[in-house]
Design a protein around this nucleic acid. Structure first.
Lengths: 209, 209
DNA sequence: GTCTATAAAGCGATAGAC
DNA sequence: GTCTATCGCTTTATAGAC
């Protein structure tokens, strides 16, 4: 299944580091675990990345572009508004589905740490010329003026969309045990349903008439 | 402002521990920091709570009842459905507003650790005879049959509500910097607005006609 | 580049005096 | 109950051989 491409040592390290950092968090991660998972010794970690801090930052920089900018591109496409909403949400849920540990990793990283990490994210958005709230604001104004949707603050709408898409993955360990105790497969199905449910729920709320 | 009640040493410790654990996480927290914050020495921590693990568990047990059961009680009250939705959401947002670090603390704690913590939460709900999804299911069936709201899965509705209420607090370090960079007071206002916005958004979506 | 060995610091936990 | 002092282990990081 996994392609038999020979990874360089550096790649092996950073992939192992991503696994350990995203599942244990920065302070919970152990350099020793990363070395073991990469199949090398601990000294080599420092040879390539100098310190835990730097290695963490490299992992962070690799994760940001996989979680964010791709999906937001659809917001700039020239397609009907409801279809845009639908495709954005579906795309966003699929990204989080593929990388369920990324959102909480990012949030946790930003929670503790200096402005450096936040700047990395901001540059990523800027570098691609994407401003999510602004992108949706233009569409919204047009749709509202055309009388097709009700008046709504773009920031709230955007946060509603992201919340309903990401939170069920973030809070899985909590929600699953309350709503489907011991039935992990039911929660998987529930998450898949949200690709249909969330767009419908959003559009039902903002559509006029 | 803070009442001048003399706290026992045990209380001072557990309050300090709550602060440190909720802001740094379990593995990021240092017993030394907790002792310093409590104004005592490190040995006394172990005298009262024996180990970091036990101290963490005590903090966890103290947090659960402040985050969960109170708000859910309104679901069992006998009031009009839309009013119930409104009061539940407002109550929930106010709880998270008062304790913005609790949700991510709980999620992170449940993510790593054994079933013991999850059981604590489940017992809390059971102990109060509260089943959130079931509570809302009854109302929902009645309202759907009466033709007042559209057909909707109670689990999805409940998750939508919790998501939109809690996520903006959890993801604050991320959203604030993207949407209101350097304008913390704007984000505070944004969060307050959600007490009005979220109930309206929900009801607009599920109301029939 | 990769290894073994080890230094240096940090950490949770305990001993023992008061 | 509270303190100082310290143990013993873990963890990050470096030295030096190959």
């Amino acid at each position: 299944m996994v392609p038999e491409i020979e990874l360089t040592t550096e790649e092996k390290i950073i992939e192992a580091a991503e696994e350990v950092f995203t599942s244990k968090g920065k302070s919970g991660a152990r350099m020793r675990d990363i070395a073991d998972k990469a199949g090398i010794n601990q000294a080599l970690l420092h040879y390539y990345f100098r310190s835990k801090d730097r290695l963490f930052f490299e992992v962070f920089k690799r994760i940001v572009p996989r979680l964010f900018p791709g999906v937001f591109a659809v917001l700039d496409e020239d397609i009907p508004f409801f279809e845009k909403i639908e495709r954005f949400i579906r795309g966003y849920i699929e990204v989080v589905e593929a990388h369920p540990k990324f959102p909480i990793f990012i949030i946790q990283a930003l929670g503790n740490s200096p402005e450096r990490l936040a700047d990395t994210i901001l540059s990523t958005f800027r570098g691609l010329g994407i401003d999510p709230v602004e992108a949706i604001r233009r569409d919204l104004r047009r749709e509202i003026e055309a009388g097709r949707i009700i008046d709504i603050d773009p920031a709230h709408l955007m946060v509603n969309i992201i919340s309903m898409s990401a939170f069920p993955f973030i809070a899985r360990p909590l929600i699953e045990r309350i709503a489907f105790p011991g039935r992990s497969e039911l929660y998987d199905r529930f998450l898949k349903q949200r690709k249909e449910h969330v767009p419908k729920f959003i559009i039902d709320s903002i559509r006029k008439g």
